[in-house]
Design a protein around this nucleic acid. Sequence first.
DNA 1: CGGAATCCAAAACGATACTG
DNA 2: CAGTATCGTTTTGGATTCCG
Lengths: 126, 126
Amino acid sequence: MTIACTTGNHAQHDVYAALCPCRDVLDLLANKWTALAIGAMEEGPQRFGALQRRLQGISPKVLTSTLRRLEDSGFVDRTVYPAVPLHVEYELTELGRGVAVPLGVLRAWVETHLDTVKPDAPAGCA
Amino acid sequence: MTIACTTGNHAQHDVYAALCPCRDVLDLLANKWTALAIGAMEEGPQRFGALQRRLQGISPKVLTSTLRRLEDSGFVDRTVYPAVPLHVEYELTELGRGVAVPLGVLRAWVETHLDTVKPDAPAGCA
DNA sequence: CGGAATCCAAAACGATACTG
DNA sequence: CAGTATCGTTTTGGATTCCG
């Protein structure tokens, strides 16, 4: 028996079902940078360079693709200010601020329980 | 420049820092199956076959590696009952039940806001 | 400054077949 | 039943260079 995922009027979404769109959304969020990128914008609009500096280790290419996916999915707004040194800002949409909450909860859990997890993490920093 | 993730006792973890172990844990959870697998065990111990049936579309190989990683990280306990038709159970540890909460929150958010996300998801599933 | 383009390496994922 | 072995595909991520 699977957990029913009743959304609105119709349907039972079974997150575990192969064709459930929930899976697509989950997949969208479940990658190395997305959750962090969203978190990095929680405090307000951020410029490309600022994000790249904050998400230490991300390459411009990956940052771009991450932001594009988020933009296409409606989590992020991209605003271009046509100035001479180009100025672009990325900002969470209403929806984006929405996911930011659960994601923040997850990040918080990780930070709190870090010591109890025993992956092969270089214990150096925690 | 970001505050490094200082160790142990006090510790400011900067999730965004390249070397923060938080990232390892996040990476561990951020993949196609992990979050679902944990969710699938929330109701109690599950057998390999049951999990495979529930996580529709997962191959035995991927399920195995997913479970192994979770076991190695301390989220899951694996118990073998040496019977003739072999019997193995996977069960969330205390820690596992811990992450299950934030992950459940995330799943719930996704289920609730599915309609507002506009990825190229086949709106079907219901 | 904000990327796009290119190339490459490494995971992650998947299908199938086979075994203790 | 619960995997392992193998192989191939796909997806991600990363480094670098270059351009408007």
